[in-house]
């Protein structure tokens, strides 16, 4: 290769590398953040119960000894309303306990009223008006759902409203795998 050819080809190569980076980078959804908790124990948290629902609340130690889901919702969240019928159906099948963080309610009554109106699929629910638990989980928007294994380790995070397809293709296989790893 002559010098002249190198001078011609080098900028072209640099350009192609840049095109490669942009082709990948610009098609990524910036609102989908990596799950920093994957493979790590659930963060420590202790939330008070929803007014009038129960008196136990929800804390991190509740997530030991069983494979569980932790759903982050809020009565203000439209996508959660979309997701809700799926969670109700899931609850009916009795496959897995579903716990919830009721995130950023400005009114103490809003969460419990919402559950009364649309149904309550949850085992434990904690009130998180100041986002303490939500931030500890790295939540950026609702709904988000975490899959926690028996040792209280976060295995998976699903961003957005859960639905049948996501359940069949992503969560269910993972849950089955966890169950065969450590049968009860």
């Amino acid at each position: 290769m002559t010098k002249k050819q190198i001078f011609f080809i080098a900028p072209l190569l640099v350009f192609l590398v840049l095109v490669g980076y942009f082709a990948v980078g610009l098609t990524r959804d910036p609102s989908v953040l990596p799950n920093m908790l994957a493979g790590k124990p659930v963060p420590e948290f202790s939330l008070v119960p929803l007014q009038g629902r129960d008196s136990v609340g929800f804390k991190n130690t509740d997530l030991l000894n069983d494979i569980t889901l932790v759903n982050v919702f809020g009565s203000w969240c439209v996508a959660c309303r979309v997701e809700h019928p799926f969670l109700m159906a899931l609850k009916k099948q009795n496959l897995i306990p579903i716990h919830a963080i009721d995130w950023r309610e400005e009114d103490k009554q809003a969460g419990p009223q919402w559950l009364k109106r649309y149904g309550d699929p949850y085992s434990r629910v904690g009130d998180d008006p100041k986002s303490r638990a939500a931030i500890a989980f790295g939540v950026t928007g609702a709904p988000e759902t975490f899959l926690v294994d028996k040792k209280g380790v976060v295995r998976f995070k699903y961003i957005g409203p859960l639905n049948d397809e996501a359940w069949r293709t992503q969560l269910q296989p993972l849950i089955e795998k966890l169950r065969t790893e450590s049968p009860s």
């Binding site: 910036p30 609102s31 953040l33 950023r104 986002s131 303490r132 939500a134 931030i135 950026t140 928007g141």
Partner: peptide, 19 residues
């Protein structure tokens, strides 16, 4: 994390406030 090109110091989003 809500309005991604703002800092939490600039943002009025509720999550930014909590952060």
């Amino acid at each position: 994390l809500v309005c991604q090109n703002q800092s939490i110091d600039d943002s009025d989003a509720s999550l930014a406030k909590d952060l």
